Simulated assay, not measured.
Amino acid sequence: MIQIGLTGWGDHPDLYVSSGKERLQDYSSHFPIVELDASFYAIQPIKNSLKWIKETPDNFQFVVKCYQGITGHLRGDFPFSSLEEMFELYRQSILPFKEAGKLSMILAQFPPWFQCNKESVQYIRKVREELKDFDVVVEFRHQSWYAPEYKASTLQFLRENHLHHSVCDEPQAGEGSIPLVPIATTNKVLVRLHGRNTYGWVNPGNNVKWREVRYLYDYNNEELSSIRSVCEDLEKQANEVVILFNNNSGGHAASNAKKFQHMLGIDFEGLAPKQLDLFEGDF
């Protein structure tokens, strides 16, 4: 089974036919799955989780991103009394998704400075233990995890710890980027498509709008066709392939995802009712 969605539901104006407060409902009339990014910036109140669950169809799924304090992105003061408190509050915030049958997986995306070494491996083990009751997918950003001498061990480590593998399409721009490694380590695999804007990846700038530079990219038909082959091969390795387009900056993610869906000949069932299909006739 292949599921296609986008990272976040707030940056895709082509999908909306309602007011800003109903963007998730509009989104869920087009795609069956979404990446929840708000959970990265702050551990969300349970009331938010319940709200998002209520606003989506019964079969809708969330890939919930790990809080930044868990993955080592946090800058500034640590807002908890202990690591244990942080993990406990995070577990409480995502448990409603699991109980509702709407949690596809938790995404633990580690930063570019998280290198392949003994300390990092031990920390991933801790994360796995703290989140042992949940499906967890790991995404690396430092190239060392896939260096020739470590690649096989990295994948075997994920298998042994029942961790899903995040297969990434992104610019090849040195140590802070990873190659596309089309291998599933469990019965579920995540494919995240970040675009191929090499200049923006290396020179995102220091202002608050750096994401608008890094993820500005429009996949062409040839590139999408190549990615299709990768995903079809992954489907032979795993029962479920989740594909998320993250090239949001220029508004390309939704149209790229729709085009990709058309290439695969997939019709998603159980979506929210559509008031208007803005993409009708585009393909």
Rank of each mutant, 00 (worst) to 15 (best):
I2N: 03
L158S: 01
N246W: 03
Q115D: 09
H162L: 13
W113R: 04
V17F: 06
F97T: 01
L155I: 03
H164P: 11
W201I: 12
T185F: 05
H164K: 07
H142Y: 00
E88P: 00
V202Y: 12
S255V: 15
R211K: 10
G101K: 00
A42T: 14
L264P: 09
L107N: 01
Q143R: 02
E99Q: 14
Q115V: 11
F260N: 14
Q143M: 05
L50P: 04
F268G: 13
K54R: 07
F60C: 11
G251F: 05
P204K: 11
I124G: 12
L15R: 10
I266G: 14
I70D: 08
N256M: 09
V191F: 11
W210H: 15
H252P: 09
G270P: 12
F114N: 02
E212W: 10
I94K: 01
S249V: 13
R128H: 11
D14T: 15
K65N: 12
E139R: 04
P179M: 03
H165I: 12
Y199K: 08
F157K: 03
D277E: 07
F110T: 12
D267G: 10
S39Y: 13
N239V: 02
T198W: 10
G69C: 08
V137N: 02
H30Q: 09
V63P: 02
R125M: 15
L276F: 15
E232N: 02
Y67D: 09
A238Y: 04
E170S: 03
A108L: 08
W210D: 11
A100Y: 05
F110M: 11
Q25W: 07
I33H: 11
E99G: 13
E222H: 05
I33Q: 08
A42F: 05
V17G: 07
Q68K: 15
E170P: 01
T185P: 01
N207E: 11
I266A: 15
V208I: 15
N197H: 10
Q172E: 10
P45Q: 09
E85L: 13
D135K: 09
E119I: 09
K65C: 15
P13Q: 06
P96Y: 08
S229H: 05
V213N: 11
R141E: 00
H262M: 12
L271N: 02
Y215R: 02
I33G: 13
G69K: 05
